[in-house]
Design a protein around this nucleic acid. Structure first.
Length: 579
RNA sequence: CGGGGUGUAGCUCAGCUUGGUUUAGAGUGCUUGACUGGGGGUCAAGAGGUCGCAGGUUCGAAUCCUGUCACCCCGACCA
């Protein structure tokens, strides 16, 4: 490719509405342009990188036995009504009508379409397992798109769906995809790790997210330094503590104290001069419209996902003032377990507490020396809180650490949620009708590209890992008006092309400084600089983008050297150990 | 949906508080020419704007008022 002929509009200014570095650099490097909120165009440079990621995905998916298909983006309402998601999915599903007034939506995901496809064509266990995937545009009408292509409304996604005859088969399909995903992200040159994730309201048994480590990531990840436990914060388990019967011996008599307008943990702690660990927070939740009290130690936070999962509720939110008043007989801020008129569940954190401080279910009063069993009963204890620094690993007891990550992939055991609702069945060996067991597996393509930039940049611009680079080499003639410089540049360019290297020659009539800045910005891994001084001695300069290192080579040797470097780096990306 | 902010040249922004000396500006980018040629070079000449849109107040509105749209940020919500 000739730079002079390429549509590659680079920019010096940081766009005013770009927050994260990947978004800023993708715009400045001429990769993308925003059309409207959450909707982006890819320019040639950006699309080349997209296709690199897609190609790696294709190769690994095919290797894992999946087959590529292409499903429609416009989907009829009937399918979604059949699965129940037409009402369930909410506003993220963009709905519209055609000229005959029929309801449609833009596909945010394709479980319905693929299940419909498979149920028509797969009739027997002999056709199973089956794993189909596609790389296609999704539309999700996000409440708040942000961070450029990282969280946008229209985006490219690879989604795969597996169909199996039984649990064991489904497990195998899941493991294959898990392995394929490891290969994909490793080959993309990303620092990532798979983490346990919440299976959410879909209710599958198992789910992993593939997280790219980055400070700007929207997800918090918990991992253990000793063992390989890693989980999304919303999923991170906390081990059940041992019961400590001894402590219960020192129970004091319960007393009521007046605490005028003292509501929050901090206020109670200061007013009564007790530490937050001694106070029990009593949160009233509305679980599918019914109140439920959740007890937790004052210095901890409730993990609403855990509560929702524990209660098996479809919808969970903090109760409104009216429900609180009805359940506790007091306004917000004075709830307590003693005498409360709701179910009461408690986090493990209060299991061994004695002489607790709680609300009195009476305005402007709290209770001191409250004790479980004696003063109130708990329906059950469970892990309901958010993991925090200092917690022990739930697997090995080691210390856990926190990092932030970008979710680039998600593998999911679906079970029979869709196959059952949509009657995707087959006949087994005995001629009996059985429901297929599904799994689904997604990768955000644009997000993977953005995540790569979040991990690979410096003050000059992007630093592509070789497997994703839009071009591997850029040939930079310092001055195109010098014919010997141009001739040598063209020769090297031609040679690289001839041996299949993706190369761009910067044949623009620009000053060297401009070319260097642009080459750095767009992040080409290897740069060959052809200038008259070195050329007079038969040499050219090879500069490595990532290290900044530069070496001189004889004109006749530089192509060989480059081939060696490329081979070594691509190999390293293929064989990099998992972290 | 709640809160906050911003809309002026392709891009980044000034001007608005206190309406009229600004014929709407700067930097950068773009065009042309000359010089220059290893880290966004210099000089000169130029093109480019119904100041988001619609009303209103006024002799007079980029500037004040009302409405509206778009975009961004924080939160809530949600795969």
């Amino acid at each position: 490719m000739r730079y002079s002929e390429m549509h590659l509009p680079t920019g010096r200014e940081i766009p005013s509405d770009a927050e994260v570095v990947s978004n800023q650099l993708m715009i400045r490097a001429g990769m993308i342009r925003k059309l409207t909120s959450g909707i982006y165009s890819y320019l040639p440079m950006g699309y080349r990188v997209i296709r690199k990621v897609e190609q790696i995905i294709r190769e690994e998916m095919n290797k894992a036995g999946a087959q590529e298909v292409h499903l429609p983006m416009v989907q009829p309402a009937e399918l979604w009504q059949e699965s129940g998601r037409w009402t369930f999915y909410g506003k993220e599903l963009l709905r519209f009508r055609d000229r005959n007034d029929r309801d449609y939506c833009l596909g945010p995901t394709h479980e319905e379409v693929i299940t419909d496809l498979v149920r028509h064509d797969i009739k027997t266990y002999r056709q199973l397992p089956c794993n189909l995937y596609q790389i296609q545009t999704k539309f999700r009408d996000e409440v708040r798109p942000r961070f450029g292509v990282m969280r946008c409304r229209e985006f490219g996604m690879k989604d795969a769906y597996s169909f199996d005859a039984d649990e064991a088969g489904a497990e195998k399909s899941y493991e294959k995809m898990f392995a394929a995903y490891n290969n994909i992200f490793r080959r993309c040159g990303l620092k990532f790790r798979p983490v346990e994730a919440d299976s959410g309201s879909i209710g599958g048994s198992f789910s992993h997210e593939f997280m790219v480590m980055a400070e700007s990531g929207e997800d918090a990840i918990v991992f253990c330094e000793k063992c390989n436990y890693a989980a999304n914060l919303e999923k991170a388990e906390i081990a059940k503590p041992d019961a400590d019967a001894d402590k219960q011996k020192d129970q004091l008599a319960m007393e009521s104290v007046e605490t005028p307008d003292v509501r929050t943990i901090d206020e109670v702690s200061a007013f009564l001069n007790v530490s937050p660990e001694q106070i029990v927070k009593t949160l009233i939740f509305s679980a599918d419209g019914k109140p439920c009290a959740v007890l937790i130690r004052g210095d901890h936070e409730v993990n609403e996902i855990k509560v929702r999962n524990y209660l098996g509720a479809a919808e969970l939110e903090l109760a409104d003032d009216e429900m609180i008043m009805k359940a506790t007989g007091a306004p917000r801020g004075f709830a307590g377990a003693v005498g409360i008129k709701t179910r009461v569940i408690a986090d493990y954190s209060i299991m061994n507490l004695v002489n607790m401080v709680t609300g009195a279910n009476k305005e402007n009063y709290h209770l001191k020396n409250v004790n479980m069993g004696r003063d109130f009963q708990v329906e059950s204890f469970a892990d309901l809180r958010v993991s925090q620094p200092g917690d022990a690993c739930p697997r090995c007891g080691g210390l856990i650490k926190f990092v932030r990550g970008i979710e680039v992939g998600h593998v999911f055991k679906l079970g029979t949620k869709y196959s059952k609702a949509m009657k995707a069945v087959y006949l087994d060996r005995d001629g009996k009708e059985k429901t297929m067991i599904m799994g689904c597996y997604g990768i955000g393509i644009g997000r993977t590209v953005a995540a790569s930039i979040e991990q690979n940049f410096d003050q000059d611009g992007i630093i592509w890992p070789m497997p994703l680079a839009p071009f591997t080499v850029i040939v930079t003639p310092v001055n195109i008006k010098e014919s010997d410089v141009m001739k040598a540049s063209e020769d090297i360019y031609g040679e690289l092309l001839a041996c299949g290297v993706e190369v761009i020659i910067d044949d623009r009539d620009e000053r060297a400084g401009v070319k260097f800045k642009d080459a750095d910005l767009i992040g080409i891994p290897l740069r060959i600089v052809v200038g008259s001084k070195n050329l007079a001695q038969g040499r050219v300069e090879l500069k490595i983008r990532r290290s900044g290192e530069s070496r001189l080579y004889a004109v006749g040797e530089v192509v060989d050297e480059i081939r060696k470097i490329i081979a070594a780096e691509m190999n390293a990306a293929d064989e990099a150990p998992l972290i």
